[in-house]
Structures are given as C-alpha cells and as structure tokens.
Design a protein around this nucleic acid. Structure first.
Length: 525
RNA sequence: GGGCUCGUAGCUCAGAACGGUAGAGCAGCGGGCUUUUAACCCGUCGGCCGCGGGUUCAAAUCCCGUCGAGCCCGCCA
C-alpha cells in the first residue's frame, strides 16, 4: 500500500467527525523555491487525493482540499549572497514590501519574484491548490482575533515557549511584532502597550520611531504563535512539514500546545518529512551529498529542474519514497536512469511517437541533430520511427505537426539535461568540420578502413544499423585489424573522440551524403 | 550534553502500522548475434535486513543497548 493511502486512512479514522479536511502547506519565499520545498507540496497533494480516495472507498464522507500559504509577511533575514548590496537596507522588512531583486524586475515584490515562477511549475506538475498570502491574511484582518488572544495571554505563551524550547525569552518579548512605519522593518520594534478594543499596539522601534500598529496588517505574530493561530483561522486539519520542525522542542511541539491551550483548536495531523539532499560529482570527485541550501549554492530551483526533467518523473521521484526517509537527488547520470526506470515501469512520456522514443535514446538523437528541430525529424525517421500520417490531406499536416511538437517538447528536456547535468561520458558533438589533426594521427590501416567505409557508400544504398554493424566487422577483417581500432577511427572521424553511441545506430541515423563526404575526405588525408 | 528520524543486494528503493519462507528496478554477468564502446529482448548472479542483546513457537518488523548519517534544542522558516 502506498504510504499516502496509509496516512489518509489514519487521518480519516482519527477524525471521523470531519467531512472536509484542509491540508496546508506553506513556504517562505525568501529565495528560489527548490526541490526540497516541493516535496512538502507533493506530499500534501498526494495525501489530499488519498483522503478523497479513502472516503470514496470506505463510503465515508471525507473530502479534502489543499491550501498553500506563502509566508510573504516574513522579514528578509539577511542579505543573501545572490542579492545586490543595496538589499542590505531591506533586511528586516516583510518580503511582500520589498521590490523584486531580479534586474529585469518583472514582479511586484520580492515575494512574487520567487512565488510566481514556482506557481507556474505547480501548474506543470498538475497540482491544484488554493493560494493564500500571509500579508493579505493579515491586512484583511483575518488574524485580528488571534492577535487579541495572543496579546492578552502573552504570559502563558511565553511560558509554553520557554518550557518547550528551554530558552529564556527577554522581558520585552511580545507575540506580536509590529511593522515600523518609519523604517519598514517588522523585526525591530518593541510593543509598549496595546488596546484590544482599538485593535492597536503602541511600539518603539530601534530606529527611534514611536508609532501605532494596527492588528490589520500593522504587524504579525511571532512564528511559533503564527503557526498555531493559522491552524484555527483556516481550519487546517493536516499539515506536512520539514523534519526540523518535528523534533521535540521544535516549532510543532510549541504549536501543538499553543493550539490546544491558547486557541482551543485540535492540532492538525502532522506529516513530518525528511529533506532532499543533492548528490553530485563535482570536477570528477566522487559524489558528495549536501543539504539543499540557497546560501551554499546547493539548491536547485523547481523551475530550473523542470526544464531538464519531465514533471511526472519529478513527482515520481518524490512519491516513491516514504516521507520520513531522505531522498538523495543526483541530477547527473542517475537522473537519466530514473527517467529510464519511469518510462519502463510507470509509463511513457509524451504522446504519439514521442512516447515510443525513450528519453535515453533521445539523448543520442538530439546530439546527432545538434539541437536543430528540422534535422531532428530526419534523424528520427532514419532511426526507424515512422511519423504517423492520417487519411485526409488537410489533417495530415496538423497531425504530423502535433506529433513533431510532442517530440520537440521531450527533446527540449533532453537538451537541457545535456547542457546542465549530463556527464561528459554521454555527450558528443557531431563534427561538421573535418577533425584533420586527429585523423592524421590515425594508423595506416585505420585510414584504409575509413576509405573502405567511403566505398561502401558509393552506390548510395542506405543500410540498417545491423547492416552497418556487419560492414564494420567485414572491414576490420579485410584490413586485418582489431575491430576496436575501426570503431575508434569512425568515432574520431565523426565525433572527434574515440568512443560514442553504438556505431551501427549512429551511422544509420546520419545523412548518407554527409557520411560519404566525411569518409572520403578522411581517407584522403 | 539532551532529544528526533533514518540505516535492507554494488546503486535507488519496497517490505515495518497489524511479527509468519527477504522483494523490485538499475548496474554486473551470460545469451539472442563464431565479432556489438552507449537506444532492443531474454536469462542469471547477488543479502550477517548497521552491530549486540532481549521478548516470542517464530523478529527486517516489537523492546533495550550500541555504531554510523542527517537534523532539532540560538536567530529564522
């Protein structure tokens, strides 16, 4: 049984009175949203569908929806290395109130700059959710009651936090952090007093400013309090979160107590999950494992990885592993193996012919076509695939265009993978220029072999991969050479390196005229 | 120092909730094809379930201990 179903069954059984579950996820958009963050949403999505499925299976009333809370009201913690120096001035301000750091500046705020590309990725992944922004929740007054309760029960809150974490809170700690109307920071003001009826707090900021903060967007609750408040405000019943929150003394434990003792709300069903670790060989060193971290440059933004791997595979990568186990993600050769495995066991990728051409095979085809889509089509046909043709002439173009489009879409993933992650061992460059230097260094018999290859091409008869393969062996025996040497000569003539994809297939998928000229020219050297 | 999670084949993972003969895929090896450098198909090898103890007729599974990896108990999410 898939883990998501086991979890869903337990949730449904535990909360029999609940007919509508709310599964919540949330991320602070302080930098590009990466694969590790995505795990939370994919888990949440899987559990949401599983709850609906379990409800249907057991004939119970159990519906579920997925909501996503973007913590846009959180402050910028520090100037990350990817930010320009002037962002030093924005440290401490809420992410929703800071300009887009992208030089192109297409988005309205810092938060949007990272959220919107990520939402596009969620679309690609086919994940549907309701998006809520923390700054809007605060500004629209949804937090007002929670803030009132928090301020009036401050002593109990600080006792809970102190007990759970074992740390001492300072005298002027407040569950409410005002947003200073002079310096714009949400981290620097101290609450001096408040009036519940007026829904206002009085503060003094480090910057010297004294002001009044409204409970409607004039500040936010401290994280540990905010989390519990949010459960109640939004009726959350299920919440996946990174394992760092899950440890005793961590924020889930404070949240659990704040929720039941202060807000009188039943704690959501927790789904702690492990991180995704990036495993990558760097400069030929053996593979190293590192936690995804923006500051260390070891994170891969979701929208970037989705250029090199089809969404269904990314989902599979995450769903096949139980949440409490960490995932080692290696985007180099193991990623190709993962895609391979997906195509073999789960299902093809793409529609029509695109589905039949495996990703692995496309890796070769794309390189032979050198990224040119018109050549891509020729190479595919020479490789033995038949693009489908329909009966009516008018439809023909359309259908064929469709088919080719699907292939190109898949090929784009391959191209990006090759460019960004592929190891040198699978890469090759079809040489348009004759590699003169390298060919001159070949032995006499190797050159003879290339001349014989040219002769084979005289009559212009195309050969299948098998036929080519046999020809190579024949030539090897006529020239009295180890066949390995012939392979080498062929690869050097075409790719300027001594090895490559299976020679028969390679030759069969290349243009005959090109091959003929190439081998003739090589033989003349 | 205190705590949490994980450890199963060379690799990536199932199996653990509820104890009942350890499972896949990849890689490897062999073959299809007296000869295949990297897209195909078939077959096959592969295990002290991290280690030590306990409970039990029976333990990968439950309990205790221990080692290793990662994380939490400051800030921040």
């Amino acid at each position: 049984m898939h883990w998501s179903i086991a979890i869903a069954q337990e949730i449904v059984a535990k909360r029999k009175e609940k007919t509508e579950h709310v599964v919540a996820t949330g991320i602070t958009p302080s930098g590009a949203i990466h694969l590790g963050n995505l795990r939370e949403i994919i888990i949440a999505d899987a559990v949401t569908s599983a709850i609906i499925g379990v409800g249907a299976d057991e004939g119970v009333e159990a519906d579920a929806k997925l909501i996503y809370i973007a913590d846009t009201f959180d402050p910028l913690r520090r100037r990350y290395s990817f930010l320009p120096p002037e962002y030093e001035n924005h440290v401490g301000k809420p992410l929703s109130e800071i300009p887009d750091p992208d030089p192109e500046g297409r988005f309205l705020s810092y938060a949007d700059s990272f959220l919107l590309p990520f939402f596009d990725s969620l679309d690609d992944l086919g994940i549907q959710l309701e998006i809520l922004r923390a700054d809007e929740l605060y500004k629209s007054g949804q937090y007002v009651d929670a803030i009132k309760v928090a301020l009036s029960r401050k002593e109990e809150l600080s006792r809970i936090i102190e007990t759970v974490t074992g740390r001492r809170l300072s005298e002027d700690w407040s569950p409410f952090n005002p947003l200073c109307d002079a310096c714009g920071r949400i981290t620097a003001a101290v609450v001096k007093d408040y009036v519940i009826g007026e829904e206002e707090a009085y503060y003094e900021c480090e910057c010297g400013n004294k002001g009044i903060a409204s409970f409607r967007g004039g500040g936010k609750l401290a994280w540990r309090v905010d989390w519990a408040a949010r459960w109640k405000i939004l009726g959350i019943t299920v919440e996946p979160f990174g394992k760092d929150h899950a440890a005793p003394g961590g924020s889930f434990e404070t949240g659990r107590r704040i929720s039941s003792e202060i807000y009188n709300y039943e704690v959501p069903y927790p789904i702690p999950f492990e991180h995704i670790l990036l495993k990558q060989e760097l400069n030929g060193e053996k593979a190293k494992v590192a936690a995804m971290s923006s500051s260390r440059g070891t994170n891969i933004p979701v929208h970037k990885i989705l250029k090199a791997v089809p969404p269904e595979v990314l989902k599979h990568l995450i769903l096949r592993v139980r949440p409490e186990k960490h995932i080692e993600f290696n985007p180099t050769l193991p990623l190709l193996n993962l895609i391979d495995e997906y195509e073999r066991e789960i299902g093809g990728i793409g529609r029509g012919i695109a589905r039949e051409i495996t990703f692995r095979h496309l890796v070769t085809i794309v390189q032979i076509a050198r990224g040119d889509s018109s050549r891509l089509r020729d190479v595919i046909e020479r490789s033995g695939y038949v693009l489908s043709v329909s009966d009516s002439a008018s439809e023909e173009c359309e259908e064929e265009g469709e088919e080719l489009k699907e292939i190109e879409k898949k090929a784009r993933y391959v191209e990006n993978w090759l460019r960004t992650y592929a190891p040198e061992s699978v890469k090759f460059d079809l040489q348009y220029e004759l590699p003169v230097e390298e060919l001159r260094n070949l032995s006499g018999p190797q050159k003879d072999a290339l001349r014989l290859m040219a002769q084979e091409l005289q009559d212009g008869i195309s050969a299948s991969a098998d036929e080519w393969h046999n020809k190579i062996y024949t030539i090897a025996s006529t020239t009295g050479m180890d066949v390995k040497e012939v392979f080498k000569a062929i690869y050097i003539a075409l790719l300027k390196k001594p090895s490559g994809p299976r020679a028969g297939w390679l030759l069969a998928s290349l243009d005959l005229e090109f091959l003929k000229e190439r081998f003739e020219a090589a033989g003349r050297l």
